[in-house]
Amino acid sequence: MESQQTLVNATDRMQLGIETSTLEGRNKVLGFWVFLGGECALFASLFAIYLTLHGQTLHGPTAKELFNLPLIGLATLFLLTSSLTGVLGINAMHRGNRRSLLRWLGVTVLLGLAFLAVQVIEFITYAHEGFGFSTSPFSCAFYALVGFHGGHVAFGVMWISTLMLQLKKEGITARKAPKVFIASLYWHFVDVVWVFIFTVVYLMGIMGV
């Protein structure tokens, strides 16, 4: 109820949601965008390394021999859908509907886990085909980039799960809302990175570019 009051005062400030109803919340969101700018540079470095080294396969398998288009399509579908359920969760938060928020976040976490399961299966298959981390410069750059992204997904799953536990206890408050909001920004960003990974690594890899 207190948060409702804070929300009223904040409607014409930065944006319309409860997450920016306090100065702390606004700073958190702004600061998180700075972090995402840094993440851009970090992932771009990994992409740059991958694009430099992906032709050097030594005696190991090439991208064309390894990648499985339907499996990557499935992983993409999971992650893309989880991005939608994430934003629908934020929508529920803006409406003050905790049950709906928890439900959407739950679906988001499950889809994130499904994505991770596909990735684990994929990496195990590659390992059986003799494609380990130190097989070739290509494999090293591939696992560094795709594995680092997968690590981000795993972290996001843990982050959103713990937020759900807090939301169950505390409800949608002016203190909790910015945390949920930046977790959703993070989740969308992870999906943004995946769009470039499936395009540059997998689709271009399958074409042998």
């Binding site: 702004l30 995402l36 700018g37 851009c40 771009a44 992409f47 740059a48 694009l51």
Partner: peptide
């Protein structure tokens, strides 16, 4: 400001990639 931060990050990233490649 968020747009400025994310586009600067993306721009730096693009420079890294172009330079490395």
């Amino acid at each position: 400001f968020p747009t400025l931060f994310i586009t600067s990050g993306a721009l730096f990233g693009l420079i890294f990639i172009v330079v490395m490649v």
